[in-house]
Write a protein that binds this DNA or RNA. Structure first.
Lengths: 195, 195
DNA sequence: CTACACCCAGACAGATCTGTCTGTCAAGCG
DNA sequence: CGCTTGACAGACAGATCTGTCTGGGTGTAG
């Protein structure tokens, strides 16, 4: 054995995941084949299938990495960093979205994209996507609870509707979607503020 | 020539369109092949390609029929029928959605589904989907104008965010999505009411 | 030096999808 | 009756995708 701990130095697996992340997030998991993934990763096909049992397993790994990079390290961490109070942190999500929506390579929410590409909530991939979306909601729910808002669960579901709706609108080309969603978000906060 | 006017009696083309509508709306346009369409329609493959130049043309015809049946004859007509004032007609959209979201065979918004399946706004199919979504907004805009709301275009964009967000949430399994969106819609109406 | 683990390159099988083509049949019309 | 039109059934070509397999190369440990 080479590695005493469970850390692979910097190998083929990471290149495959990075390639899959770039391609799947921007072009969808159905439109991208494994040949394109290995070409960009500069690995052999056998290497991919040594590390992942199937393309579906690779997609599941991609979704987990998306949660780490997008949900946790971008949305959650950056929203908390940009504002002091939980209420302002919630609103800061749409400031992030505003910048995101204006990017040339805007790619949308991979969890929604994959869920709608599969068109099957009960498939392993569909269920995983729905699970990752639920994890986004629980971050919102936690912020709502920290802000002292009434009924954080109901709030999180409604807030998430604004997030998803604005992302789809941005996918159509609406560059003002984040601003519109934020305005509705302010009203939603007001309605959930304790009397 | 058989038909003096431009009306085909009841032929293969209608069976193809009906089959495509059922399959594409429920399982997506990428997951369904032409073989499945012709099998359900009970037509020969050559017959399909006599009436439609390609599968893409069939998809475009499906989207147009979706606009006729879903957008116009269901959402718009039924919302106008169920309420008297334009404001109540807007809110009635989410009453319709509430029943729709609870259906066993809930299929989501085909325009959003296809747009995200394609992942390309510039392709003919993606552009058509975006166009049909814009047509939904113009119906909302017209109702907002009839209701005397301020800035009907801004209102329609925001309202449509609620519609699309709740549809995606329903696709995840949230049966209360319509009620939540309607509550936010009431606040949006209040904000756009003239002083 | 040898053994072994890991990896690259690419051929290959099997499945599936679009779109074309051949052949047959039934109905309407002079 | 004979001709035309449209449709059915299905084989077929060509492309593409997943997953397997062979063969060869390289670096490291004992």
């Amino acid at each position: 054995m080479l590695h005493a701990a469970g850390s692979v130095p910097l190998g083929a697996r990471d290149r495959i995941l990075a390639s899959a992340y770039e391609l799947f997030s921007h072009h969808g998991v159905r439109a991208v084949g494994v040949d394109e993934v290995i070409r960009r990763a500069e690995v052999a096909k056998a290497t991919l299938y040594r590390h992942f049992a199937s393309k579906d397993e690779l997609v599941l790994a991609f979704l987990q990495q998306r949660e780490q990079l997008w949900t946790k390290e971008w949305v959650e961490a950056e929203a908390r960093r940009r504002a002091d109070t939980p209420e302002e942190q919630l609103l800061a999500i749409f400031d992030l979205f505003d910048e995101w929506f204006r990017r040339e390579d805007f790619e949308g929410c991979s969890f929604v994209n994959v869920l709608l590409e599969m068109n099957d909530r009960r498939s392993p991939i569909g269920a995983a996507s729905a699970g990752h979306l639920a994890n986004i909601r629980s971050i919102v729910r936690r912020l709502a609870a920290e802000a002292g808002l009434r009924d954080p669960d109901e709030f999180a579901h409604s807030w998430h509707i604004l997030m998803k709706g604005s992302i789809v609108a941005a996918g159509e080309g609406d560059h003002e979607a984040a601003r519109r969603a934020q305005a509705m978000g302010r009203q939603l906060i007001a309605r959930h503020r304790p009397a």
